[in-house]
Design a protein around this nucleic acid. Structure first.
Lengths: 193, 193
DNA sequence: GTCATTTATTGAACTTGTTCAATGTTTTTT
DNA sequence: AAAAAACATTGAACAAGTTCAATAAATGAC
């Protein structure tokens, strides 16, 4: 059940078998059907999750009703609203399953327990947050400097697995463009080749 | 010399006086004159810095020569290229003083020393990275959902101190628009009131 | 204080991306 | 298998933002 989680943790830091067991035992397995929500705007995010099956999208809905996707999470990715989870304030985000999915969830209390009793877990989350932050910095710069065409080409090159699994609607909401315009970009790319 | 740094650390976590002294003693004071660089593209970032005086901008230059500002750092802010610092690979970024400035710098080796010998420092940087990450997530969503006018209004409301100290050139590079267009936005706002 | 440099403004032509509406295609549900 | 729903494409009119060039204003260097 937690094999993928253990492998993921191993890719960041080294834990003894006992530490690994102790930590992984804190997670609860949960099944989320397609179109169901792990979190809705207004709720306090009470978990940090690790995806073992399926796809989630973490998104925001603005005043005019448009959706902006902060990130996708598929197998082997972590998912949470880190803001709401740490501050315990209502979330501004939605986390929705785009397919029938499964996650391992750890509660805030159990995570705090791990921080105090398993010092390396503090390092694990520092390292993971740093890596996530670096990726977001790159995306920020790309969004400031690149045209939508280029961002789309980058996306399909960087995340071929996501490109296969996601509708163009979802990809457009991630790139920050209308799906109609994405369709025109795709047409332009296809006819150019 | 390190009073501001101590105050900043206290705003994130609680350290004993001995821990605080031990940690703050690892920092070196450095003066950087206006238009000089703390880091240039191609160099490995060997420090994490805390600004005690002045202003820095952390920016990227794209293929067409346009500059995108990742963030500004004034007194009481931290500054580094976290990507280059952790991976020890050449940086893609420039860090430049926009005024005569002063920073407290900690080297990678000393930071590692702190992580192993002062466990709370691990927590300090986890917490700080989380907060920075949350701020960047918000900026990302704003950039995906809001028009340049609104982002500018948000900027001057959120960072009045930066708005005062920075040229419109710098602000435009942060917002991801041309400075000419920022000028037109400013005109529109001024004549509307 | 003057000259040179940098920063800010404005207008015109252009490019990128949006909106809306209509139509076709695919997927899901029953 | 048919009907409904969701997704994708296309075109036309529009809005947002860029580029280039010219000029004005502010700042810095000597």
């Amino acid at each position: 059940m937690t094999a993928l989680l253990k492998q993921n943790i191993n890719s960041h830091i080294a834990l003894t078998d006992a530490e690994m067991e102790a930590f992984c035992n804190l997670f609860q397995h949960k099944i989320i059907k397609k179109k169901n929500f792990l979190l809705r705007k207004g709720e306090v995010c009470k978990f940090e999750g690790f995806v073992t099956k399926g796809t989630f999208r973490v998104y925001h809905i603005d005043k005019s009703g448009r959706e902006q996707i902060l990130y996708f999470a598929i197998e082997n990715w972590w998912v949470t609203d880190i803001d709401s989870f740490t501050t315990e304030r209502p979330s501004q985000l939605f986390i929705e399953a785009l397919e029938d999915s499964e996650v391992l969830l750890i509660s805030k209390k159990d995570k705090e327990f791990a921080y105090t009793n398993l010092p390396k877990i503090e390092k694990l989350f520092r390292v993971m947050t740093q890596k996530t932050h670096v990726a977001l910095q790159r995306r920020m710069i790309d969004n400031l400097s690149k045209t939508a065409d280029q961002r789309y080409l980058d996306f399909i090159e960087k995340y071929p697995q996501l490109n296969q699994r996601l509708s163009n609607l979802q990809i457009a909401a991630y790139l920050g463009i209308s799906h109609e315009f994405l369709s025109k970009i795709r047409n332009k790319i296809a006819t150019k080749k």
